[in-house]
């Protein structure tokens, strides 16, 4: 399972291109850099669908598949990050579809863990509570709504890139994202009312 370290490394676009080109020649250093570059986002994606240990397995499987297929990656349409999301999405659907997700924390004591008493702590607790409500409402959405919002909102992919991964046109992605956000809003309202 993942842990904290100062070696976490997001690559800027120019460096990412250079590293991907080295990775095409199966340079282990380049693949390590790409792994570290993608890991937080890919682990977060898998972690919302799988238990922490299994999420780590899924990210490793996605990297192994990327190493096998890097010859076929092209800098057109979706970029490298979107390509990795596409691979991980398939890995999760193919290999781990029967594995249950982890339970989201709801207990106020759990949410308050690590906070120091005082005004800032109250503000932080409120923010954590709101974030927890949004995460629960998000988890209640359909698989396709979650996928779409994950790619558009959290991964920051364009409608065109998202459409390429989901087999939809950009216009359909924009319409679907608006509807998914409406459903998220309704789920939040339901959660708050309840």
């Amino acid at each position: 399972m993942g842990g904290s370290s100062s070696r976490a490394a997001r690559l800027d676009p120019t460096t990412l291109r250079q590293v991907v080109e080295r990775a095409r020649h199966h340079d282990p250093d380049a693949w390590e850099s790409l792994y570290r570059h993608c890991y937080p986002a890919l682990y977060a994606y898998a972690g919302r669908r799988l238990s922490p240990a299994v999420a780590d397995d899924a990210v490793s499987d996605a990297l192994a598949r990327a190493i096998e297929r890097i010859d076929r990656f092209e800098w057109r349409g979706a970029g490298f990050d979107a390509w990795m999301y596409g691979i991980l999405r398939n890995v999760v659907k193919e290999r781990y579809r029967h594995v249950t997700t982890q339970a989201l924390p709801t207990d106020p004591a759990q949410l308050a863990q690590g906070l120091v008493e005082g005004e800032d702590a109250s503000t932080a607790l409120l923010a954590r509570t709101e974030a927890a409500q949004i995460r629960r409402a998000f988890a209640a959405l359909s698989e396709s709504d979650q996928d779409l919002l994950e790619l558009r909102v959290i991964a920051g992919l364009s409608a065109v890139e998202t459409g390429q991964l989901l087999g939809k046109e950009a216009g359909a992605v924009r319409m679907a994202q608006a509807r998914a956000l409406d459903r998220l809003r309704a789920a939040l309202r339901g959660g708050l009312d309840g």
């Binding site: 399972m1 993942g2 842990g3 904290s4 370290s5 100062s6 070696r7 976490a8 997001r10 990775a23 199966h26 340079d27 282990p28 380049a30 693949w31 390590e32 792994y35 570290r36 890991y39 937080p40 986002a41 682990y43 977060a44 919302r48 780590d56 990210v59 490793s60 990297l63 192994a64 190493i67 709101e130 974030a131 927890a132 949004i134 995460r135 998000f138 994950e150 909102v153 959290i154």
Partner: peptide, 22 residues
């Protein structure tokens, strides 16, 4: 709410496995 923790890194064993695969 869903932003990944940017400081997360893979374990040393998994990094070594990726290097071996490459």
């Amino acid at each position: 709410s869903l932003e990944p923790d940017p400081t997360l890194v893979p374990s040393a064993e998994r990094v070594a496995a990726v290097r071996r695969a490459a």
